[in-house]
């Protein structure tokens, strides 16, 4: 474990001004991501969970370099993305790929699968001939479980699950080290979801990929990830190895999320904690701990200062000042 993590963010912030003043004056600011420091160790899967408005997708986009962070650093394999030279960036971009949520809008409807899969090769491996690109595309398609001859078809000829496989093939064709998967199974039916999750797991192990898996679905995260980070209103409130997080949650929000996830088996029925209200607006978050307005365990001190993400035990960090709580796990004892 002394290896340098592949991805490290330090106090990463992504703020969006709500409406710019005519002369660049400061309007209200949405703090979508507000100081996130996480590491993703090599060859491991980090699950990033949170509800809508938690900033998980914004964080993902910032890590991918799709937006310029307001503050903080993002380091890939020891290279600071903000300071990298353009040639370094070009090779970094090949090593980081992404799979999208919506299998319908993520493929260009006017391009055949061969063309879609060739685009990354054309720009990242310019030496490759046209026919070699096509061969690679067909190979990749088979790797994700679709027949190679489907290569000349168009996106509308495929189902949602098949398109998601094509999206995975596009990400993997340039042999990246890191994959960001943003809600990749949430648009799929249950039976197809399992197929795609299995494919992800298999490819991650075989190709030794490092992965950031963003989702709102705790069960999915529990299945696929090695580590889990829980986000609430732009901050990470808990970070732990998966088993640890599910069997020994240390943040009340994690506990609430775990208890709210419905389970079909009556034997697994947990005590339900129903939170009050909604996520507050990221425009004016509550003072101190941002979760305190909905937290069943909030005390006076919670409103005073923002709790730090503290290391409670090796591989387990939480941002809650109440160490005295014993929270309900999702797993049976």
């Amino acid at each position: 474990m002394n290896e340098l993590p592949l991805i490290q963010t330090a106090d990463l912030k992504q703020h969006f001004p709500l409406h710019k003043g005519l002369f660049g004056g400061q309007g209200p600011v949405i703090r979508a991501v507000d100081g996130v420091s996480i590491d993703i160790p090599r060859r491991s899967v980090l699950g990033l969970v949170g509800e809508s408005g938690s900033g998980k997708s914004t964080l993902g986009r910032a890590i991918m370099g799709l937006s310029r962070p307001t503050a903080g650093t993002m380091t890939f394999d020891g290279i600071d993305m903000a300071r990298a030279s353009s040639s370094e960036l070009k090779s970094l971009r090949r090593r980081m790929q992404m799979v999208f949520q919506d299998p319908f809008s993520s493929l260009n409807p006017r391009m055949s699968i061969a063309e879609t899969l060739s685009v990354p090769l054309r720009f990242h491996n310019p030496g490759l001939s046209r026919s070699r690109r096509k061969d690679r595309a067909a190979e990749m398609l088979e790797r994700v479980g679709l027949p190679g001859q489907y290569i000349s078809r168009f996106p509308h000829e495929f189902s949602g699950g098949q398109r998601q496989r094509i999206g995975i093939a596009r990400a993997l064709i340039v042999q990246p080290d890191f994959i960001m998967a943003d809600e990749v199974v949430s648009a799929l039916d249950v039976s197809v979801q399992a197929q795609v999750l299995n494919l992800f797991g298999r490819l991650q192990r075989d190709l030794e990929l490092t992965m950031l898996f963003i989702t709102h679905d705790l069960a999915v995260v529990g299945h696929i990830s090695d580590f889990v980070a829980v986000m609430y209103l732009g901050r990470v409130v808990e970070f732990a190895s998966t088993r640890e997080l599910f069997s020994n949650p240390r943040h009340p929000y994690t506990e609430a999320l775990l208890s709210a996830a419905p389970s079909p088996k009556s034997a697994n029925r947990r005590k339900r904690i129903v939170l009050k209200g909604d996520i507050p607006s990221p425009l004016n978050p509550p003072s101190g701990c941002q979760f305190r307005t909905r937290c069943p365990y909030a005390v006076e001190d919670c409103s005073h200062e923002v709790p730090k993400l503290r290391e409670l035990s090796p591989e387990h960090k939480a941002a809650c000042i109440r160490d005295d709580l014993s929270l309900a796990p999702a797993t049976q004892q």
């Binding site: 992404m98 999208f100 809008s105 993520s106 990354p120 720009f123 990242h124």
Partner: peptide, 23 residues
């Protein structure tokens, strides 16, 4: 998303405009 995907694929502005968007 397919435009973002093209950006991540390293595609140039010209490529995105004329090959991804225009058609």
């Amino acid at each position: 998303d397919f435009v973002t995907a093209a950006k991540i694929s390293g595609a140039s502005h010209t490529w995105i405009m004329f090959r991804e968007l225009l058609p």
